[in-house]
Computed example of a mutant assay.
Amino acid sequence: MPAPTRSRNADLLAAYGRCRSTANRNAVVHANLPLVWRLAREESRRSGHPFEDLVQVGCLGLIRAVERYEARHGTTLSTAACPWIRGAMRHYLRDRCRPLSGSHHLLELVARGQRLQQQRQHEGLEPLAPEALAQALGTTAERWREGLQLQRGLRLVSLDQPQGSAEGESLVELLPAPAWEGDDDGAGGYGAALRWEQRRRLWRGLKGLDRSQRRLVLGRLLLRRSWRELGRPLGLSGKVSQRRCQRALALLRQRLLEGDQLGNQAGNQTSPSPWASSIASTAASSV
């Protein structure tokens, strides 16, 4: 079925605008089904869900789009309908489809066991023990426990959900920090991120110095050169190069602390972050 021409679509929409009957609405929907098919193919490739199910849901989105479409806004029906169709499909995938999958037979076994337990509860009977329940279902206790583990594994929970401990820890607080290559201080990925931020802030402060000051600071801290070696290219003595480097480090320390204070004021913090002072103090102690 080919997509309708613009004039054909305009005629169908005009007829629906004059008489908003179900027949006129369905004529517009039927003419624009190729749009639903195209979006359903895209979503089916993306999600792996059957094409036919997505077409059915997409048709509902197209119906809602046709009922709310107003030509006076200057947009075509296809432009206005795409968000409705795609949104209906993705809401369906979000609410009814599992993002994780497992053995269908195990999940069906657990469902049968839960229905049996509910039936006994309605009849006023005591729930069966796992071994007795497995025997009633015609399976082994080990397979029943495997099914329960699969069901728990497929259940989605929020990382912010508290675990009921005295400290009120959430799941995200219990996750270990990812280990980054080169992390030897035990800080994990958080330590690497912190060091990256420190280097970024330190380099921003260094860019505020003039070229000769940067050469002195970097030559002393990174290359570990003597004061005489640092002063020779600049035509300075060892004492003068040392004094200039100390003044540059004092200026760098002041700028780091001022930048940290500005960040604290913007973030409504009451005390400076300790790492900015640590950077400046470490740099000054290395001279």
Score class of each variant (00 low, 15 high):
Ser103Glu: 15
Ser103Lys: 04
Leu106Glu: 10
Leu106Pro: 01
Leu109Gln: 08
Leu109Asn: 06
Val110Ile: 10
Val110Asp: 08
Ala111Gln: 12
Arg112Ser: 12
Arg112Lys: 14
Gln114Cys: 08
Arg115Leu: 14
Arg115Phe: 01
Gln117Lys: 05
Gln118Leu: 15
Gln118Ser: 14
Gln118Arg: 15
Gln119Cys: 08
Gln119Lys: 15
Arg120His: 11
Arg120Asn: 11
Arg120Val: 11
Gln121Arg: 15
Gln121Asn: 06
Glu123Arg: 05
Glu123His: 03
Gly124Arg: 05
Glu126Tyr: 02
Glu126Arg: 14
Leu128Val: 05
Ala129Gln: 13
Pro130Asn: 10
Glu131Ile: 02
Leu133Gln: 13
Leu133Pro: 09
Ala134Pro: 08
Ala134Asn: 07
Ala136Gln: 14
Ala136Pro: 01
Thr139Met: 07
Thr139Glu: 08
Thr139Leu: 11
Thr139Asn: 07
Thr140Ser: 15
Thr140Asn: 01
Ala141His: 10
Glu142Pro: 00
Arg143Asp: 04
Arg143Ser: 06
Arg143Val: 09
Trp144Met: 07
Trp144Ser: 01
Arg145Trp: 03
Glu146Ser: 13
Glu146Ala: 15
Glu146Gly: 14
Gly147Ala: 07
Leu150Pro: 06
Gln151Pro: 00
Arg155Met: 11
Leu156Asn: 04
Val157Met: 03
Val157Asn: 01
Ser158Pro: 01
Gln161Ile: 00
Gln163Met: 13
Gly164Met: 04
Ser165Tyr: 02
Ser165Pro: 00
Ser165Ala: 04
Glu167Gln: 13
Glu167Val: 01
Glu169His: 11
Glu169Phe: 07
Ser170Trp: 00
Leu171Ser: 02
Glu173Thr: 10
Glu173Ser: 15
Leu174Val: 03
Pro176Gln: 03
Pro178Glu: 10
Ala179Ser: 06
Ala179Tyr: 01
Ala179His: 09
Asp184Leu: 14
Ala187Met: 14
Ala187Asp: 13
Ala187Ser: 14
Gly188Trp: 11
Gly189Asp: 12
Gly191Leu: 11
Gly191Pro: 05
Ala192Ile: 10
Ala192Leu: 07
